[in-house]
Structures are given as C-alpha cells and as structure tokens.
Design a protein around this nucleic acid. Sequence first.
DNA 1: TTTTGAGTTGTTCGA
DNA 2: GTCGAACAACTCAAA
Length: 487
Amino acid sequence: MSAVICWFRRDLRLTDNPALTAAADTGLPIIPVYIHAPDEAGAWAPGAASNWWLHHSLEQLKGALAERGLTLVIRQGDSLATLTELITTANAQAVHWNRLYEPAYTARDTHIKQTLRTQGVDVQSHNAALLHEPWTIKTGTGGDYKAFTPFWRACRRLSDPAPPLPVPASLNAVKTPLHSDSVNALGLLPGRDWTDGLAAQWQPGEASAQAQLQHFVQAAMGHYEQGRDWPSQAGTSRLSAHLHFGEIGPRQVWQAAQQQLAQGGAQDSQADWVTGTDRFLSEIGWREFAHHVLFHHPDFPDQPLNPRFADFPWQADPNDQLLRTWQQGQTGIPLVDAGMRELYATGWMHNRVRMVVGSFLVKNLRLPWQAGEAWFWDTLVDADMASNSLGWQWVAGSGADAAPYFRVFNPVRQGERFDANGDYVAHWVPELAGLPAKHRHAPWEAPTNILSDAGVTLGVTYPQPMVDLKQSRQDALAAFAQIKKPS
DNA sequence: TTTTGAGTTGTTCGA
DNA sequence: GTCGAACAACTCAAA
C-alpha cells in the first residue's frame, strides 16, 4: 500500500487547490495534513487574532474534508520530522503543497524539498496564492519592480489568469487511520476569552469566503470606487483574511469579478461597474505587488527600503507611553481612536482608517513604523507579512512607491470627508455619540455648552488630544527635512 | 546611454 | 466655497 501527502499550510480550501488536485490525480489514497510549527516562522510567529482565525478555519477545513471521506491529520512540531514520520508510517511516495513566499518559509520549504527528494520522495510545490509569482514579473532589464503602476501594467499585459480548478471529483482515503491531534490541542485560542467581537464579525472558512466574495461583487463592486472610502459602510470586500489563509484564491476572485462585470456592466451604471471592478482588481494587484517586494527584499518587514530612513529622528517614548495610548484608542483624536478600537474589538480596520492611524503614529507621534507594524501583526485577523510591511513602509514614506514625506493625513479633515455624518466615530467612540455630527471629529473645538449638553467633559469622559495636530505636523516636516539628501 | 514622464489614497495657504 | 500652487527632490521604468 502507498499514499500521497497533501500538506495544507495557508491554502485552507478544496476549490482551486493545485496541490490537492495534483495529489488526487495520482489516484493514490490521500493524507491531508496540517502541521502546527509557529517556531518556523522565524521572528514573525502569527499573532493572537491570526491564531483565532486559524483555529476556526482548520475546523472548517477538517469538516469539509470529512464530508468527502478524508480525515485531516493535525500534528505539531518540526515540519520535516513530521512529514518524514508520516511518509514512513503510511509508505507515502509523494508530497504536494502550495507555495508560501515569506523568507523564513521559502528557506524552510526549500530545505524540506531537497531533503525529501534525496530520500526518493516525489515532492512538488504549486501556486495557489498569487496570480503571478514574484519571480515571474520582471522589468525590461530583468529586475524587480519598485513602483506599483508599472508592475501592475506588466501583469495586465500578460494573459488572464487560468480559471479556478474545481474540487477534485474523486478523493481516496487511506485505509488505516493515522494519529491526529485535535484542533483544540494546538492551543490557538487565547486563555482569557476576548474573542466575542471577532466571532460576531467573522466566519472563517472556505464556504464563508465564497459567500462573501459573491456578496461583495454583487452588492458593492458597482460603487466600489467611492464606497471603499467610507469606513462606516460595508463598501470594501472584507476578503483580506480569507485570502491570507487561502480559504479563497485570487484566481477565484478574478473570475468572480469578471463574471459580475459582464452582468452588472450591462446595466444602467456601466461606467461605475467598469471603474469599480478595475479598482478592486488593482487592490488584488497591490497584494501581488506586496509579495513581489517582500520576495525580492527579505529585510522588508524590518528595515526601511529607502536606507535614508535608517537615520530618521524618532520620538523617544519611555515605557511606551505614547505607543500604548495609540494602541488603546485613547489619543483624543476621534477618528484615530475609532479605528484603533475597531481593530482591537473586531481584528480588522477599514483601509482608509489604517492610513489615518498609521500616519498619526509615524508622523504626528513620530514613533517608528515597526511599532505600528508589530501591533497590527498581533491584532489583525488578516495580518499578512507582505501586505502589512508594505502598508507601514508606505505610510512612513520609506517603502516602495511610498507616500511623499509631506503627505501628513489630518485626521480631522479625513473624518469630515470620509465620515461626514460621524457615524463611524459615534459607533466606536460612544462617549462622543451625543455630540452633533459636525463636532464629532474635533470635540476640543466645540462650544462649551454643546459639550456639556452631550455629557462630554474633555480630559474626563474623553481625552484631550495627546498632541497638537498642527504643531506635530510641522515637527514631522522638520524631521523629514533632516534626512533629506544634502544638495 | 540619455532622456523623459510618471509616481494609490494629502494639506494648507492665498487668491 | 473653490481653485491652483507649494510642499523636494528622487527614483523608477521605459523609450
């Protein structure tokens, strides 16, 4: 008797899963396995919110496999040792997996592939996570891209991605049961349960991912161009965590968007459908670009891509006082606090607000972008090394295609433009909900009687602003002037 | 090799 | 209220 191993990692789905399809195509009994090995992520072991998602996604995958007669084998410990043991026990002759792109994982997987092949095992890796893998997109001179627009143009010049693969029609199970840990045994859930807010907001798993994709393309893609900017509305796809864990893949997203465009684009507001679809797919493009940049610059999560920023004069912050105030959503700037509280409560933050809180941390507080990156890493359910690094280096101005130094978001102005009714602030900062909308973004400017009518006492019921926005903006511009190249 | 146009998401100030 | 300019200079990618 022999078998084939399908090693699941961050491809927790049955549809459009090339490794699973390849395993099925061998005709051999399949051993689906998940190995929990957080140590192998190097310095970037997944954070708490991410682990919560993983726990539930594994339960979903286990259930979906069971419906097709397969038992997901769950193990902990060294990946190579675990695979080797399974290969011996089940007399497996082949291993299939879908590729990861973070530096620590590519190094590990390369080593595992070489070792197992030396032992005569047929090892094949596949692409489930990207439209175009990082090394396949090259500039005219063979280099890697450092600006998004030419990168995405180069991608779009290529032929459209292949249509998604169906779930394999036939999946053979092994006859002899193999030992498996329970999902619970992985210890992914926190000891003190703070996850109600996550559970109220998210349903991990492939079925939910597909439902969300359909819902988004039908209900929101036609007005995505504007709708994506309003944090109080469900105008974004909310697919980030599903994509990170591979519960759905970009080929499926691409196909769903194109099919919906063919239908929706024929309706009255055709231009909105075209621009909405285009813009949405370019966000998928940013995800691709982030992987491209990380692959070619393994230091990207830790070091500024622009070396000039190594000398940036960050603010001293004894005992992390400033950082903690930001983390807890107690800065006294309503839009910033709303975003930080949404993050902590739900494991997610609207993208517009991510830019605002990021700009506030890096420019108004002048704290290093790596501190914000680390907090997001621990608290986001969609925490992804490529996208997270790209976002933070973008807002800091040190990264690929980054914001110019003088682009300092004014969180009051942003609130007035993108949360004009103050709904988002009222929801996440309820102590300000009694204020009229026009005062919710800058309560320190509201007349005293309006504050008291609303039950707001600054410094008591809600903090005074922790910095003066105008002055700290000036300080940031001055700090950036220091690292300008002397002319 | 040199040149050229472009580059996610902003704010402020003054006319 | 609206509009254009200034906020710098640099780097990238392709012609």
